[in-house]
Simulated assay, not measured.
Amino acid sequence: MDRNLSAGLLAALSAAFIGSAWQLVSRHGVTTTLGPMELALMRYGIPALLLAPLWFGRRRIATKGARMARVLLVVGGGLPFGLLVLAGAQWAPASHMGIFMAGSLPLFTAIGARLHKGQAVGGLRLLGLGCIALGMVLFAVGSFRGGTLDWRGDLLFLVAAMLWAMHSLAFAQCGLTPWQGAAFVNGWSALLLLPVLAFAGAPRLLSAPWPDIALQASMQGVVAGLLGLVVYMVAVARLGAARASLSAALVPVLTTLGAAWWMDEPVTPAVLVALALVVPGIVLASGAVRWRVKQARPAA
């Protein structure tokens, strides 16, 4: 196997496990002792401090891409994305986060690649996108009929997935290494967070139990904010945005199982139907599976 391909696949697999763990921990945090602002402070403040040396010295960050690409890199993978997810986690269960965020990522990535690069989608990829769309529509209908506020979180998850797709496509245009990209996104996100904190504050940070703060600081700041962003950028750099999004196929399953085990979230028939459509849809939409047409041999 090609070395770049194997490294990309390993990075994509790591990104899937980290992404699922971040979803579970975020849902637990905003429904117990902490809120979105407290988690956002740890999610972007800690890695910004850890990666601060990359902003200075001879090897400091020097972006080569267009300004709009840099803006989309921060908006799509930084503070706006994080606040949408953390706010949505207050209303919708973790399984919804896995299905709507990870499921719609290949869909939005394909739309972005079509608009930006003119890449056509057909064959099995189009079939996969159709499965994803059908699974999420059926799941969304169930959320509306349930009479709960889950649909608010689902909508925020969809917008967050759209932003993350922009982040993936913009990274290739910025001329940054994965570590530089993580420093760039977290650094600017931390700066953007300062005026938001001045207005809203983070009052629960002083009243929450220390074990909860330690869990969130390690998962939000180090595992997700630092390692998760880096390994996903490695996957995009080695595999491309479309193939890297294949890692999203594992996230809905991992998050649903993890939420059932850790937070006693029920695995409903609606969740199973959505997974049965979305997960194969992600695999097909990634372009990893293609038709193999055998050419007829000429007659002797």
Rank of each mutant, 00 (worst) to 15 (best):
M1G: 13
R3D: 02
A7D: 08
A12F: 13
A12Y: 03
L13T: 08
A15Y: 11
A15I: 06
I18H: 10
G19P: 14
G19D: 06
W22L: 06
S26A: 15
H28I: 03
T33N: 14
G35D: 13
M37N: 06
L39Y: 15
M42T: 00
R43H: 07
Y44K: 03
G45S: 07
P53S: 09
F56I: 00
R59C: 08
I61T: 05
T63R: 12
K64T: 05
M68V: 09
R70I: 05
L72D: 00
G76E: 03
G77Y: 05
F81N: 15
G82A: 09
L83C: 03
L84P: 03
V85P: 00
A92V: 01
M97F: 15
M97P: 10
G103M: 07
S104H: 15
P106G: 05
L107H: 01
L107E: 00
R114P: 00
R114N: 14
H116S: 10
Q119P: 01
A120Y: 02
R125W: 05
L127N: 05
L129N: 05
I132F: 11
A133M: 07
V141Q: 15
G142S: 10
G142W: 14
S143G: 07
R145E: 02
G147V: 01
W151D: 00
L156P: 15
M162I: 02
L163S: 05
L163E: 04
M166L: 15
M166W: 11
T177K: 08
F184V: 02
V185A: 06
V185Q: 05
L194V: 03
L197H: 15
A198R: 09
G201T: 10
A202E: 02
P203D: 14
R204L: 15
L205Y: 14
S207C: 03
A208E: 13
Q216I: 04
S218N: 03
M219F: 09
M219C: 11
M219Y: 07
Q220P: 06
L227T: 10
L227C: 15
V230C: 14
V230G: 11
V231E: 05
Y232G: 00
M233S: 13
V234P: 07
R238F: 07
R238C: 09
L239T: 12
G240C: 02
A241Y: 15
R243P: 13
A248P: 09
P252L: 11
V253P: 02
A260G: 04
A260Y: 13
W262R: 02
W262A: 14
P266V: 00
A270R: 12
A270D: 07
V271L: 01
V273Q: 07
A276W: 03
L277D: 13
G281D: 04
A285L: 07
A285H: 03
G287P: 09
V289K: 15
R290D: 14
W291V: 05
R292P: 13
K294T: 10
A296K: 12
